[in-house]
Write a protein that binds this DNA or RNA. Structure first.
Lengths: 345, 345
DNA sequence: TTGTAGGCGTTATCAC
DNA sequence: GTGATAACGCCTACAA
């Protein structure tokens, strides 16, 4: 019971394959007139056989695959899923499907994945987390894809310096807001949980942190910057380390909400109550942030919308490859909830 | 600058396309002998041109797409991502890629998605969450796919009654364990937050709940069963409703950890302390469960492993379509942490 | 209004 | 050892 092809339909309907193609594709572009009677005959044949055109063949003949690649840097962070949700919605609405890959930063698989995506002739690629930036190998691969004119949109937190469109949600301004908010609350030792998977990520949070301290004439204490990995456990350990410092911080900024959850746990384990003894701020505003106890103060952006914009831009670029390079900015904003308060002592 | 094809390589190397195919595919199956010198010439041409075979053409000619479809029922639940993580790893390790779709239950898009998957001639399909079960339309579509002999593996929490392989992690036994554990703690009013997106889901939790009550001769109070949707907010509202009952429950079982997070929040808002005033149990053991305050008592399974098994089975079936139908069981087990304790009053 | 035929980039079967 | 050449299933001029 082989899958029916256009030929089968043509035979059954007593027409040529061209005719089948015409009616199946809704009279293509211009106006290829098909008489209602043959149209009906073809349609009948189509669903008598349960014919579904072979996308591979269509793609070979027509050029595009209606497929876009999606590369996720850390499948464990809900925030990326929120982006993915937007990407998926918008892609589907536009008739595209997603080819999903999870690439850890500097992954040994990076090359395989890029090559495979290229072999599959995807129409475009969405990159999340700007993990490319400091992997030289990944950069090279990306450059190759760009040379082949593969439309690419990167979702990231800072300006990218190579030639792709990008959707930025820069936390810079909001981070300063966070800092001045905490400073205003009389916090003087503010710790930073810098849990990143690649060096360059989240500089839109680290740099303003440093700048803000400088702006108010406070020294930067490197001890207060805990560099760690991206998992909850990493956040937990980092917070533990910070909070055990002789002069412990009275406020903690975690680079993202996931790490903040770990930090919250660490505070609990040290019998520090948030926000009375310790203020805690996260980033991303993942869904559950406002259900935590205490509800997490965090810097938000509309991740679903980011995903949607990325796809829209990608499709625009697919349609018009020579468009000038685009940068789309998505606003971010501080949401003060319950995990922050006046400094103790 | 069009993408180089086999013909270009052949021309540059001064050989036929057949030869190119042979060397690129590593001397195909049997032993097609190629002299080392031509081999080298071809290889040189390949990377001089940066030639990458077109997967669509290969697929058309050879039959398989090395692509498997993955359908996720609720992109917002971290638990599904944990499955996806396993699926992605195993698929990649076996040379397959994932075509991702997020289908809400009874989605209006279900038909589109299934048809598209079919048109793309994916080699196999992994379904999560047994969302098919009560959508008649989805059932029909699935039946069609089965008729076309598409290998399918379903990841679910109960036996499925149509002809596909499946990976079950049945929470039945563990749910009874939960019940007797709570009952042993002297809880007499145990609420159930039954937040499902389709009626049939999570019966492996609802039914044992009912049975256990009956087993100890306690009446089932329908008031204690809050049926709601699958989001955190749903869990929150359901818990609120339950906890505001005149005779409020002293323990709450949430069908999954996400709902439990909402419930935890609700308890907090009512000034009920967990576990002193209220015991709370979740299911799935999502990563963050053990970082919540209090750490969540939950029923766990190894979701990543579930995903891996599903892919393994799928690939086995692709290789041997006539294998007898398989059922793979993944163990589940209760993890007692801090959110449960003796009943108050 | 409908049919013919060449092309899309591979693989695979035969020859040479 | 290597090269023609016919599929694979569809699209789309160009004819008729």
């Amino acid at each position: 019971m082989k899958k029916p092809t256009q030929v089968d339909v043509a035979r059954l309907a007593g027409v040529s394959t061209a005719t089948v193609s015409y009616v199946v594709n809704g009279l293509t572009d211009g106006r290829v007139q098909i008489s209602e009677s043959t149209r009906q005959r073809v349609l009948d044949a189509v669903d008598e056989l349960g014919y579904l055109p072979d996308a591979r063949a269509q793609s070979l003949a027509s050029g595009d695959t209606k497929t876009i690649g999606l590369i996720v840097p850390d499948i464990r962070n809900p925030h990326f899923w929120e982006h993915a949700e937007g990407v998926e919605q918008e892609a589907r609405a536009s008739g595209y499907r997603l080819l999903l890959s999870d690439i850890a930063l500097n992954s040994e698989y990076a090359e395989d994945i890029f090559k495979d995506l290229s072999r599959r002739r995807i129409d475009g690629l969405i990159l999340m987390g700007s993990f490319i930036d400091h992997s030289e190998e990944a950069q090279n691969l990306l450059t190759i894809l760009r040379k082949r004119r593969l439309p690419i949109v990167e979702i990231c937190d800072h300006n990218v310096d190579y030639d792709v469109d990008f959707v930025v949600s820069d936390y810079r301004a909001a981070t300063k807001e966070v800092m001045f908010y905490l400073l205003g609350l009389q916090h003087r030792r503010i710790g930073m949980i810098y849990g990143v998977a690649a060096s360059v990520i989240a500089e839109d949070r680290l740099q303003p942190y440093l700048d803000s301290l400088q702006a108010v004439g406070m020294p930067v204490d490197q001890e207060l910057i805990a560099r760690c990995g991206p998992t909850i456990e990493d956040g937990y350990q980092a917070a533990l380390q910070l909070l055990k410092l002789p002069a412990r911080p009275t406020a903690l900024i975690a680079i993202n909400d996931l790490l903040a959850i770990g930090a919250l746990r660490a505070a609990g384990d040290l019998n520090l109550s948030v926000p009375t003894d310790l203020s805690l701020v996260g980033f991303d505003d993942i869904h559950m942030a406002k259900y935590l106890t205490p509800r997490l103060t965090t810097v938000a952006k509309d991740a679903v919308s980011v995903g949607q914009h990325a796809v829209k831009q990608l499709i625009a670029r697919i349609g018009e490859p020579d468009l000038p390079r685009q940068k789309i900015s998505i606003p971010t904003y501080l949401i003060i909830r319950e995990s922050t308060g006046p400094a103790p002592f």
